[in-house]
Design a binder for these strands. Structure first.
Lengths: 253, 253
DNA sequence: TAAGATTTGTTCGTATGTATC
DNA sequence: GGATACATACGAACAAATCTT
């Protein structure tokens, strides 16, 4: 009946992993923040009583997670680093690489979250930010003439949503939407999600985006929410024929 | 037969990171799946023309991301590994360690997603699964008498939601909710989120959970959705007085 | 520009630990 | 138990990057 703390199998953790844990503990104990310096290699060797190679493997572990950065030269060493959104997106992508994620799954989430994002943004964007959004919509104003153009339009449309997510105040909301957009973009690139063009639906989607920008400008949260909800429904319809699954590949850093 | 020419433009990356990338490419080229064996250390040394130490650092990088697992002994070596949900949760937690995430942010998401989860689960759970949920609610049936009990009730309540998320068919939805529950659990443990008891609200929350289980059993998706929505509103109210921010600490593996 | 100092980056040889047969 | 095939760990040396003077 605890549910929170899982008892972890006492698997034998390798020395480098142990050292990585010790380094984390060392950082937490001292409440270090981004940019603060860690002991250098020589000091860690003395501190943890391990060889240089082991220390370096531990540092690579932490570096791979984005927790530290390392620089050479005088004044160099390892420092507490802020995990970038890009890295976090990649690491999460590696997990879902192994999961069965369908378009339906992603759109169930988008339908729930994107209207929420839109409502929260109403009246909060500077005019330059609104202009950026307008430019993204304008970038694919004329009807696509070839599959290649279809593809680029599709990606540009997703970029519109990525930009909205970037503006989100709720960083968790922004992150998740960015993640889904990224997944969809990869699907678009690696599979032929754009080969069943439906110009009418496409035109409607573009109209939605323009209406959304207007609602955001006016600060009308409810209109923004409703418009986005319609847009999501249309986008889902547009992709629904596609049987697509996510491309199974490692996502590079 | 291998990659061929090195790309000078990316020479910023350290050798171990380069090798890690090469190993990933090697895996992707061959479309290896979980459990498939990678070359052993000696072979990688020959393959990538680097020393043992460099190969090992590269392997630790991939291991830290959950992409490979390593075993010693005959027949041992490195193998393609499936990234576990637990590891993915930790890595994502590391990212949000650095973000300003408020209770309001999390509840905005929960209000949008948990009703969706509840609706999707209606009529899909086996009776054993429903029993597990009932047990979790029963675990905190009597009113809490002390702050310590309040805390455990709070955690148990979150465990209820974690279990629901575990049953989700949509793995993305399940993952995100699990993540939020985990964050809230940590807040509960590391901060005094349970020191402003409100017995009436608490009783109502418990009632909601029982109603929800009933709706799930009956297969009434709309009732499940509505009940969960009410439950989320109540839970938010319960936590709203708390100024809490997430504890700033590294999340252990 | 150049030299020197500092710190990480990489290699090699060797020895030890561990799981399988 | 012994042999084998692996990863694991250590230490010493040298290379490369980068800062200071």
């Amino acid at each position: 009946m605890d549910g929170g703390q899982e008892i972890k199998a006492k698997s034998k953790r390798s020395r480098p992993v142990q050292v990585a844990d010790q380094i984390k503990a060392w950082v937490v104990e001292r409440d270090l923040r981004q940019g603060d310096k860690l002991p250098n290699e020589a000091e860690m060797i003395a501190l943890f009583k391990v060889s240089k190679g082991t220390v370096r493997e531990a540092l690579r572990i932490l570096e791979a997670q984005g927790l530290i950065v390392t620089r050479t030269g005088p004044g160099g060493g390892s420092f507490v680093g802020e995990v970038s959104q890009d890295r976090a997106l990649s690491l999460l992508g590696n997990y879902f690489y192994f999961q069965e994620l369908s378009l339906a799954d992603i759109y169930q989430m988008r339908k729930a979250l994107e209207p929420e994002l839109a409502a929260g943004l109403a009246g909060r964007l500077a005019s330059e930010q609104l202009d950026v959004l307008t430019d993204l919509v304008s970038a694919h104003a004329s009807p696509a003439q070839s599959p290649e153009e279809e593809k680029h339009e599709h990606i540009a449309s997703l970029a519109f949503h990525a930009k909205l997510a970037e503006f989100a105040e709720n960083r968790l909301l922004g992150f998740i939407i960015t993640f889904m957009v990224r997944m969809l973009t990869e699907m678009t690139v690696y599979r032929k999600l754009y080969d069943v063009p439906n110009h009418e639906l496409w035109r409607r989607g573009r109209q939605h985006q323009l209406e959304l920008i207007e609602a955001l400008r006016k600060g009308d949260g409810n209109a923004a929410r409703e418009t986005m909800a319609s847009h999501m429904a249309a986008a889902e319809e547009l992709m629904q024929h596609q049987e697509a699954r996510l491309a199974r590949r490692f996502i590079p850093d």
